[in-house]
Design a protein around this nucleic acid. Sequence first.
DNA 1: ACTCCCGATATTTTT
DNA 2: TATCGGGAGT
Length: 685
Amino acid sequence: MNAPARLNAQQHDAVTYMDGPCLVLAGAGSGKTRVITQKIAHLIDSGVYEAKNIAALTFTNKAAAEMQERISKLLTEPKQASQLTISTFHSLGVKILRQEAAELNLKDRFSILDSDDCFSLVQDLAVTTDKQTIRRIQGVISLWKNGMVDPVVALKNAVDDEEAQAARIYQNYMATLSAYQAVDFDDLIRLPVELFRSNDKVREKWQRRLRYLLVDEYQDTNTCQYELVKLLVTGAGKKPMFTAVGDDDQAIYAWRGATIENLKTLQDDFSDLKIIRLEQNYRSSTRILQAANAVIKNNPKLFEKTLWSEHGLGEPVEVSSMPDDEQEAEQIVMQLSAHKFERHAKFSDYAILYRGNYQARIFETALRRDNIPYTISGGQSFFARSEIRDIISYLRLIANLDDDPAFIRAVTTPRRGVGQSTLETLGAFAGQWQCSLFEAVFKGGIEAKLAPRQLTPLREFCDFINQIEERASRPGASGKGENAAALLDELMHEIAYEAYLYDNFDERTAKTKWQNVLEFTNWLKDKSKGGKHEDGPEKNLLELTQMVALMTMLEGRDQEPDAVHLSTLHAAKGLEFPHVFLVGVEEGILPHLGDPDTPAEQLATRIQEERRLMYVGITRAQRTLHISWCKKRKRGREIVQCEPSRFIEEMKLDEGDAPPKEDEIITPKDRLANLKALLQKPKAA
DNA sequence: ACTCCCGATATTTTT
DNA sequence: TATCGGGAGT
């Protein structure tokens, strides 16, 4: 086992504490992932827990993959690593639902609708056509679900007309989902919670299976997720055993339902909660941490916490004002190049961080002009591309014939003589008989509604899907049906998707789209074989489809080996970079102020979250941090005056950042680095 | 009805 | 820089 010796005292406490519930308040860069992975190893090594009874929950696939990776290296027995449950909340939800579907009147072949599908669902149910409103309604419904508010209560508590309307849509929305035998992302957590609440037997089964729980990024959990954790760890005659790791100062997802309240509640719900603070930062220089601490001090604190570092004072944090946004981009790219040249650094040592996605554009063009490689994190996900969603709709339909949204998409792309009016008639008929669209195609009486020229293509399509479906589920060599990806290849050939692309798009786009499709099918093939873990079980089409629904990025895709990172502050959480440029730090942008007429109290909590965002930004930097703001900025057609963000003042740079004194403690490594920097500076100017 | 063009406009994002 | 919505034109 490597390196328990390298854990500091608090980390050691966190890793070895096994007497009960444990909350680790892990400041930025304090070795959070290390504690989790080491703790898992410790749980196993101590002999108290078996790998198959330990579960670690994360929010993103990326975090889960990284954790799995790191734990695999740590464990002496490679077999143990594959027995662990390391997954996102949502994939655990899928696993539970698939196994317990019968208890919930859900078939195990349920579909998982993504937010786009849900959007169109709400669109169909809503009176308005205004996209903004529909999006708001969708958001409200999601918040209700995550807060475990049912439609009746939502309607009763509605404060205005729109909310009342949303509550009514909410009710229909749930009914529609169950008609489709489909769930949305929120249901993946909510339904297991309801099941565990109502069925002790099932709950105890899962409690026996998951005896020790570790929760990453605990500050980002919403009410529903916390409830799931609570239900899994508390049982009659059972001592709650879990470790939650989080940082209230990095809670930046309140807008999508996360509540830091969950940190406080934890103390109330578990009176013997052991709280451990990790305050030693292994990432940044002291100056950077001072700035971060100074900013976050302005927030009311749940838990007092001050980060410190052994890395020495480091270089001053630089703040510069720019004439306008265009020059900001230009200057920063220039500074970055010079800086890189001076230090013989790599492009990948640099990150440019900003509040809103739209701010990326101007930096992209500036970087491109200078031929500097860059990658943008966030942005449109691979699985959201229309060509991929087209293919997925076929998969979903084959897995679940009741999935009407998938049916509509698949039957109309590529076009095969089924149009809007045919679908409307079919929909009305299906509604009348309370059956799915697919079923309606073969139901007696449909002949009276649809002319043969409308019905024939429908039946041909459904026969075709039926035939694929049958082969996918017929027991084959593996006992799980014919190979999913091979079937998919045949499917692609049959529906002539490539030809469709070239018919409907110009050659260039068609080509890239087709390449995406091929990449996707290849990836699927790989996954159906069990992925890179050769011992992983072979997956059938159903399992693949449900997994795909939870994916956003295709891991290991076109990664520039050496590129500047462009990222929103949100997407940068959990990452670190030697040199960080935090740009557009202006009032109205970094404390982003939405509606000018938001109530004062709401504004206050919003500002607090914005401050945490600033804190996250500052603490991404290891060695140097540049902050910039613009005096003027183009906004649409007009140019607006800007003020520096209040957060710049709050960093208290002038006081804490006096010229370095002789007697200040600097580690040799840092002193050398500083010296080098000083020697090289004159060259740059 | 349906498409095309122009102008206004911009949170954050995972599952 | 895209995207969305409105208005005009087929």
